[in-house]
Amino acid sequence: MDLLPDELLVDILGRLPPCSLAASRCARKDWCAIIDTRRLLRADLLPLRLDGFFCLVDAFDGPRGSCIDGYETVFFSRPSTGRRISGHLDLLQDDDHDPHNPWLWDHCNGLILLFSGVIVNPATGQFVSLPPYPEKPCVGMGRYYKHAFLAYNPIVSPHYEIVFIPSTPNIQVNNKAESEWPPSPFTTHVFSSRKQRWEERSFVREGQAAGTIAEMDFDYWTSHRVVYLRGLLYVPYRNNSYHENNFVER
């Protein structure tokens, strides 16, 4: 079979699904050249696979580890990939950061944002420090808690973005309790890995408001049900009647 002319090899390889093409690409040097020059492999169609996950454990009474604010970061992986993927986030911190503070702020398709402003890809072992967070991430919302969300899909683009989204204030000290939520227009800061900087970006709400600020109730875990799908970031806000509403970023 190693004598097959290129033309016939292309006919065979062209019938393979993306996973098998990716494997074939590694099987032989000449196959790799054919697959690459003829652009047979649609990397965007390769399935993402779960190799491991981090778990934030409530560790008030647990053993001391990478514990912050009562939560400890524990990494789980499959035996076959655990050797390759490191869950030791504290080793990835640079000296400027608290080595015991690898607090996961957000994650998206295998990329992790640490609260200290470090982006980590445990699968590749790469990490990078972001420029400092903007002082006022969400314009005109100084009293609100903010959460930074990652938007990343490696099969579409190697670039990622980080978006600051406010949660409603849990102590409604201002006079805005009857204001619509989410507000529109809404101006926030977005970090683009392509441009390597934070910049202001404005969004306009589509459709009705989810309710008023007074009707919203925020808890920390709400932020972990955010989904990035097909270029849209879905942020659920839970109001007092436990209806979920989506805040869509384009």
Partner: peptide
């Protein structure tokens, strides 16, 4: 080469 798309298969 397996480092590139190894996760896929």
């Amino acid at each position: 080469h397996m480092l590139e798309y190894g996760w896929a298969y």
